Amino acid sequence: MAILRLLASLFIFVGILVGCITALLLVIVLLRFPLLLIAVLLACWVFSRLLETADEPPN
């Protein structure tokens, strides 16, 4: 049972580490290519506008 717990902890640690590295690489790529950053910000803005209009009741 201890080996199973160790493997689960190792799997969780590796998953968190890979997630952090992915987020860091994404930030580096966005800062390296400013047009990509603008495109991501524009997409987030459009998505938030769509969510706002979807929450409003129809007239």
Rank of each mutant, 00 (worst) to 15 (best):
31 L>H: 10
35 L>C: 00
28 I>D: 11
26 L>H: 08
18 V>N: 08
35 L>T: 00
45 W>Q: 07
44 C>Q: 14
37 L>E: 02
44 C>I: 10
43 A>S: 08
24 L>R: 12
30 L>W: 02
21 I>P: 01
27 V>N: 05
39 A>K: 05
32 R>Y: 10
39 A>W: 02
49 R>S: 11
43 A>D: 04
21 I>E: 05
47 F>T: 13
19 G>S: 14
37 L>T: 03
40 V>E: 04
40 V>P: 00
43 A>Y: 04
31 L>A: 09
34 P>K: 00
36 L>I: 03
46 V>Y: 09
46 V>F: 13
24 L>Q: 11
45 W>R: 06
29 V>Y: 11
25 L>A: 14
17 L>C: 11
41 L>Y: 07
31 L>K: 13
35 L>P: 01
32 R>F: 13
30 L>K: 01
44 C>F: 12
37 L>F: 04
33 F>N: 12
36 L>A: 04
34 P>D: 04
36 L>F: 02
24 L>I: 11
24 L>K: 12
40 V>I: 07
44 C>D: 09
33 F>T: 08
33 F>P: 00
37 L>H: 03
24 L>W: 15
28 I>F: 14
32 R>A: 12
45 W>P: 00
26 L>R: 11
25 L>R: 15
23 A>N: 14
41 L>V: 06
41 L>A: 08
26 L>Y: 11
45 W>N: 05
28 I>S: 10
39 A>Q: 07
24 L>D: 14
22 T>M: 10
34 P>A: 02
39 A>G: 02
41 L>T: 04
23 A>R: 07
25 L>W: 13
24 L>E: 12
39 A>E: 06
29 V>C: 07
26 L>E: 14
34 P>E: 06
47 F>E: 13
36 L>S: 02
31 L>Q: 09
19 G>R: 05
17 L>V: 11
48 S>I: 09
42 L>F: 05
30 L>G: 01
21 I>S: 06
42 L>I: 03
20 C>Y: 12
31 L>R: 09
40 V>S: 03
25 L>I: 13
19 G>E: 10
32 R>C: 03
43 A>P: 00
30 L>N: 00
25 L>P: 01
30 L>R: 01
38 I>T: 04
39 A>C: 00
18 V>W: 06
40 V>M: 06
24 L>F: 14
43 A>I: 04
32 R>E: 04
46 V>I: 15
30 L>I: 04
49 R>T: 05
28 I>G: 06
25 L>H: 08
19 G>Y: 09
33 F>G: 00
32 R>D: 05
37 L>A: 05
49 R>W: 07
42 L>R: 02
35 L>I: 01
17 L>Y: 07
42 L>T: 10
40 V>L: 10
29 V>E: 09
22 T>Y: 08
44 C>M: 12
37 L>V: 00
36 L>D: 00
28 I>R: 14
19 G>N: 15
41 L>E: 06
24 L>Y: 15
41 L>G: 05
43 A>V: 01
24 L>C: 07
24 L>A: 14
33 F>S: 06
42 L>D: 05
48 S>P: 02
